[in-house]
Design a binder for these strands. Structure first.
Length: 825
RNA sequence: GCCGGAGUGGCGGAACUGGUAGACGCGCGGGACUCAAAAUCCCGUGCCGCAAGGCGUUGAGGGUUCGAUUCCCUCCUCCGGCACCA
C-alpha cells in the first residue's frame, strides 16, 4: 500500500525509516542489556527524577499518559547523557475507588483487576520506550507496600499525631454508602441522585495543623512554581487576629470571638454562634430553647456545600442571651446562625454590620442596629442603610473614642494593645488548614492498623503483625457500613491475636496516605525490613525534579511535605522537604475540554503510535508547545514530525561522508548544540526540536559531513527520538567507536552529550540593524572589531537610510553593542 | 467576589535580561515528478505592490523610552484555584 509507492518514488537513495521494525528491536536490546537497572548505592552523581505515579486503570494508556511520561523520559535520557546518574522509577498508586466500583459491578476482586491492569500498563510503558527501572517498581495495594502505610500510621499514633474525633460524612441513604465530596456534588448522590445526608462517624485524623507554620515557612526555599506556592499559602491560610472574650449578661458564661478587625469593635452590635458550638446549650435561655433546637436540627440536614453558597439568605435564631461590649457597655444579642462555621476561628463571630457585608445582611434580616465606625472612601459618615453603603475597605475611623482619626494600620495594633492590657482579648494566629481526615469507609485501601478492646478503647496493632492484611472474604455490595465489617476472617483474626470481644478497625486509609511517602520506598533495594535506608535517603532526597499535574497543588503536595517533616522529627529521614524542584506538566485537552472517560472524549494514542511510531508520537507531543502548557489535541501536525524523522533518516543515510566539515557547517552544528542544550535545560522541548529542524534544513544543502559530526548530530537526537537515534548510531559504527575510545557502553543514550566550542559560535562579521526613528531601514555587515564611529558612519551611507536622512539633522545616535544603530531625527 | 496565569498570522507556537516580531511546523496557493493520485522536492504565504519599496502589526486604550510582545496604569476576554474564613 502506501509504503511501497513511497519507496518507489523516493529516488531509491535510501530505504524509508520503518519504526514498526526498528522500535521493538531496540526496546528488546535495551531490556536484554539491563540498561535501565539502576544501582542506587554506586551512583556517583545522583539525580532523582520523579513523575507522579499513575492509577492503574483498566483502560489503555491515553494521550495524557504519553505526554506525562514520555517527555520526562526524554529529559531523563538527556540528563543521563549529561553525566548524571538519573534515578527515574515508576510505580502504581493502586488503591482507590475505581477498582472497588468495578468489583461492585462485576464481582471481580480489586486485587485481581488491579494486578492485571498493572501488568498491562507495564507492557504499554515498555512499548513507549521509556527507561523505567522495573526492578524498583512498587504497587501501593500490595501487602509489601501497605505494611509501610500501616507502619506510618503506627508512628503517627505513637507520636500523638493521630487522634479520633467525630466528623460528618456524606451518606447516600439509597445506595447505603459513604460518598466522597466529589461524588456528592450539589448535595445529591452521583450514582442515584438521592439527596445526600450528613452522618457523624468517629474517624481518625492526623494533626497536620501542628505543622501549619512550618509548611508555610518551608515554601520559601523550594524551587516550585510561584503559582503553586501561592495556592499552598492560601490553603494553609494563616491569619493574624485577636480572640476577644465578652462577658454574657446575667450569666457566668463568656464567649470568645476571633477577629482580624478589632478596630471596628465600637460598631459591634451582635454576636453569632455556630449551630454546632458546644457552648450553645449553655447560652440558650429557657424561652428560646425550642426555637434554637429546631434551627440546629434543620442545619444538620444541610450538607456543607449547601451551607456555603455565598448568596444564600441569612437565617438564624436568637439564643436569649446577650454579651457585653466593654468598649461601649452595649448589650449585644447572641444569635445562632449557620453562616458561622464551627471549624474556623472560635466558631463565634462578633457582628459589625456597618463594615462587613455578611454581618449587614444578617443585621438587616433580624432588625439589628447598624453603626458606622469608618468613614467611606468618598467621605460619607452618614447612616448605613443599604448593602451598597457597607464599607469593607480601610478608612478613617470615626465614632470610636480613642481610635478616632486613625487608619486601620495604626488602629488595629492600638486596639489589640488596649484589649490585651484590659484583659479583654489575646492576640492569636489561626490557620484555615484542617487536620487530615484519614479514615475511609471503603474496602480497597490499607486497613488502619488499630484494634478495639471490648470496652471500645483503641489499641495500635503491634508492628510484628504487619502487614495487617486486607481480608478477602468481603461483600463489595454497599450495605451502609464499611465492607470490612462483614469479613469473618478479619474478626476471627483479631480475636485470635488479641482476645475475645476485640474488634478490628473497619475503616481503611485515604489513598493520599499511600502516596505521601512512596518516593522514599522507591529507594529500597532488597532489604524490606526497614522503612528507609538512611544512607540512601541522605544521598537521594530531596527529589531533584518532581513532575505532576497542578491539581495536586493542595492535597498530595501538602500531605507529602507534612509526612516528610513528621518523619524527620521522628528521626527516620534527614530532610524536611521531599521535593526540591516541582514542575507541572500542562493538560492535554480535546476541543478545549478535559479528557475523561465520563465525557467519552479520551483520545487513544494507539493508532498514531502504530502508524508513526513511538518516537514520532512523543516528539509530536513535545513539539505542540512548552511542556508546562499542555495544549488542545489535534493530529494535524503529526505529519510534520513524521516528515522530519524521514528526512533525518534520509539525509544521514545519503549524505557524503567527507574528511572535513565546511566552516559554515561546523559553526551551524555548534550553534545547534548550544541551542538544543539550552532548550532542554529549560524544558523547552518544542524549541529543541525546531533547532534541529533548522539544522537539517541547512544540512540538506551541504556537500557532505564528517562521520564525527554525524555522530554528534545523532547524539543530539538521542533523548528526543531514542529509537531512531539508536538505529542511526549503530549504522554509523557508534557502539564500536564508543568502546574503542573510552570503554563506555555502546548505546546511543549512554554516550556523552555533545559540547560546543563557543569560539565557533562567533563569526568575524556581525550584522548591525539600522533604524531611523526606531523603524528598521536597513542593515550593515561589519567586522566584529569595528568601532562605534565606523559602524554609525557605515549606517549613514546605506542607500535606504540616506533617503531618510536627506535634508534633516540627526539629533541622537544610539548604538547597541553588536546589535543595532538607531538614528533619531 | 478574592488570588494566580494567559491573550502574537488561518492554526500550534518562536522571540535570552526592552533592540530586525512572526523562527520551526501545520494548513493553504503555485510549480516539478506522475497517465493520475498519494508520497517527495522547489517557490510563495501579515497587508499593498510586477518590482524596488512602502505600510501595518503582538486583546483594547493610555504612559515611560531613541526604541515596548517584553516595564507601568486602566479596561475587556479566556483559563486555573479559593470562597458566608470572621
Amino acid at each position: 500500500m502506501e509504503r511501497d509507492t513511497r519507496e518507489r518514488y523516493h529516488g531509491g537513495m535510501a530505504q524509508l525509516y520503518d519504526p514498526a521494525s526498528v522500535e521493538p528491536k531496540w526496546q528488546k536490546k535495551w531490556e536484554e542489556a539491563k540498561t535501565f537497572d539502576f544501582d542506587l548505592k554506586k551512583a556517583k552523581d545522583p539525580l532523582y527524577l520523579l513523575v507522579m505515579f499513575p492509577y492503574p486503570s483498566g483502560a489503555r494508556i491515553h494521550v495524557g499518559h504519553w505526554f506525562q511520561y514520555s517527555i520526562p523520559d526524554s529529559y531523563g535520557r538527556y540528563l543521563r547523557m549529561r553525566g548524571k546518574d538519573v534515578f527515574h522509577p515508576m510505580g502504581f498508586d493502586a488503591f482507590g475507588l475505581p477498582a472497588e466500583n468495578y468489583a461492585i459491578k462485576t464481582g471481580v476482586p480489586p486485587a485481581a483487576s488491579t494486578a492485571e491492569n498493572v501488568q498491562n500498563m507495564i507492557v504499554q510503558f515498555k512499548r513507549m520506550g521509556v527507561m523505567f527501572d522495573w526492578k524498583h517498581t512498587l504497587n501501593t495495594s500490595e501487602p509489601a507496600y501497605y505494611r509501610w502505610t500501616q507502619w506510618l500510621f503506627l508512628q503517627m499514633y505513637k507520636h500523638k499525631l493521630a487522634y479520633r474525633k467525630e466528623a460528618p460524612v456524606n451518606f447516600c441513604p439509597s445506595c447505603q454508602t459513604v460518598l466522597a465530596n466529589e461524588q456528592a456534588q450539589d448535595g445529591t448522590c452521583e450514582r442515584c441522585g438521592t439527596p445526600v445526608i450528613q452522618k457523624n462517624l468517629t474517624q481518625w485524623f492526623w494533626k497536620i495543623t501542628d505543622y501549619a507554620q512550618r509548611l508555610l515557612d518551608g515554601l520559601a526555599l523550594l524551587d516550585w512554581p510561584e503559582k503553586t506556592k501561592v495556592m499552598q499559602r492560601n490553603w494553609i491560610g494563616r491569619k493574624e487576629g485577636i480572640n476577644i472574650t465578652y462577658r454574657v449578661k446575667d450569666s457566668r458564661e463568656k464567649v470568645t470571638v476571633f477577629t482580624t478587625r478589632p478596630e471596628t469593635n465600637f460598631g459591634a452590635t451582635f454576636i453569632v454562634i455556630s449551630p454546632e458550638h458546644p457552648q450553645l446549650t449553655a447560652l440558650v435561655t429557657a424561652d428560646q430553647k425550642k426555637k434554637v433546637a429546631a434551627y440546629v436540627r434543620q442545619t444538620k440536614k444541610r450538607t456543607t456545600s449547601e451551607r456555603t453558597i455565598a448568596d444564600r439568605k441569612k437565617t438564624g435564631v436568637f439564643t436569649g442571651s446577650s454579651a457585653i461590649n466593654d468598649l461601649t457597655g452595649v448589650a449585644m444579642p447572641i444569635w445562632v446562625a449557620d453562616y458561622v462555621l464551627m471549624d474556623f476561628g472560635t466558631g463565634v463571630v462578633v457582628g459589625v454590620p456597618g463594615h462587613d457585608l455578611r454581618d449587614f445582611e444578617f443585621a438587616r434580616e433580624m432588625g439589628i442596629e447598624v453603626i458606622r465606625v469608618i468613614k467611606s472612601a468618598d467621605g460619607d459618615t452618614g447612616p448605613i442603610d443599604s448593602a451598597d453603603k457597607v464599607f469593607e475597605d480601610e478608612g478613617e475611623i470615626i465614632n470610636s473614642d480613642f481610635l478616632n482619626g486613625l487608619h486601620p494600620h495604626a488602629a488595629i495594633p492600638k486596639m489589640m494593645d488596649y484589649m490585651e492590657s484590659k484583659g479583654m482579648g489575646k492576640r492569636v494566629t489561626t490557620y484555615r488548614l484542617h487536620d487530615w481526615l484519614v479514615s475511609r469507609q471503603r474496602y480497597w485501601g490499607a486497613p488502619i492498623p488499630v484494634v478495639y478492646d471490648p470496652e471500645g478503647r483503641p489499641h495500635p496493632v503491634p508492628e510484628k503483625h504487619l502487614p495487617w492484611l486486607l481480608p478477602t472474604d468481603v461483600e463489595f455490595k454497599p450495605t451502609g457500613e464499611s465492607p470490612l465489617v462483614h469479613s469473618k476472617e478479619f474478626i476471627e483474626r483479631t480475636e485470635k491475636i488479641f482476645g475475645a470481644g476485640w474488634r478490628p478497625e473497619f475503616d481503611t486509609m485515604d489513598t493520599f496516605v499511600c502516596s505521601s511517602f512512596y518516593y522514599l520506598r522507591f529507594l529500597m533495594e532488597g532489604d524490606q525490613k526497614k522503612f528507609v535506608e538512611s544512607k540512601l535517603e541522605e544521598k537521594w532526597l530531596p527529589v531533584d525534579m518532581y513532575i505532576g499535574g497542578p491539581e495536586h497543588a493542595c492535597m498530595h503536595l501538602i500531605y507529602a511535605r507534612f509526612i516528610m517533616m513528621a518523619l524527620m522529627d521522628m528521626g527516620f529521614v534527614s530532610h524536611a522537604e521531599p521535593f526540591q524542584r516541582l514542575v507541572h506538566q500542562g493538560l492535554i485537552t480535546n476541543k478545549g475540554a478535559k479528557m475523561s472517560k465520563s465525557k467519552n472524549n479520551v483520545v487513544s494514542p494507539d493508532e498514531f503510535v502504530e502508524r508513526h511510531g513511538s518516537d514520532v508520537f512523543r516528539m509530536y507531543l513535545m513539539f505542540m508547545g512548552p511542556f508546562t502548557d499542555g495544549g488542545d489535541w489535534s493530529d494535524t501536525g503529526i505529519k510534520g514530525i513524521d516528515r522530519f524523522v524521514q528526512k533525518v533518516w534520509r539525509i544521514i543515510n545519503v549524505i557524503k561522508k567527507v574528511d572535513q566539515d565546511s566552516p559554515q557547517l561546523l559553526a551551524n552544528l555548534h550553534r545547534t548544540i548550544a541551542r538544543v542544550t539550552e532548550s532542554l535545560d529549560r524544558l523547552h522541548f518544542n524549541t529543541a526540536i525546531s533547532s534541529l529542524m533548522e539544522f537539517f534544513n541547512v544540512l540538506e544543502k551541504e556537500e557532505g559531513m564528517t562521520v564525527e559530526s554525524t555522530r554528534t548530530v545523532v547524539r543530539l537526537l538521542t533523548p528526543l527520538a531514542p529509537h531512531l537515534a539508536e538505529e542511526l548510531w549503530e549504522m554509523l559504527g557508534g557502539p564500536a567507536f564508543a568502546k574503542a575510545s573510552g570503554g563506555k557502553r555502546g548505546f546511543a543514550f549512554e554516550q556523552e552529550w555533545p559540547s560546543y566550542d563557543p569560539a565557533l559560535l562567533v563569526s568575524d562579521t556581525m550584522t548591525i540593524v539600522v533604524q531611523v526613528n526606531g523603524k528598521m531601514r536597513g542593515s550593515v555587515d561589519m567586522p566584529c572589531d569595528a568601532s562605534e564611529a565606523d559602524i554609525i558612519a557605515a549606517a549613514k551611507t546605506q542607500e535606504n537610510v540616506k533617503k531618510y536622512l536627506e535634508g534633516r539633522s540627526v539629533r541622537k545616535e544610539i548604538y547597541v553593542q553588536g546589535r543595532l544603530v538607531n538614528l533619531v531625527l
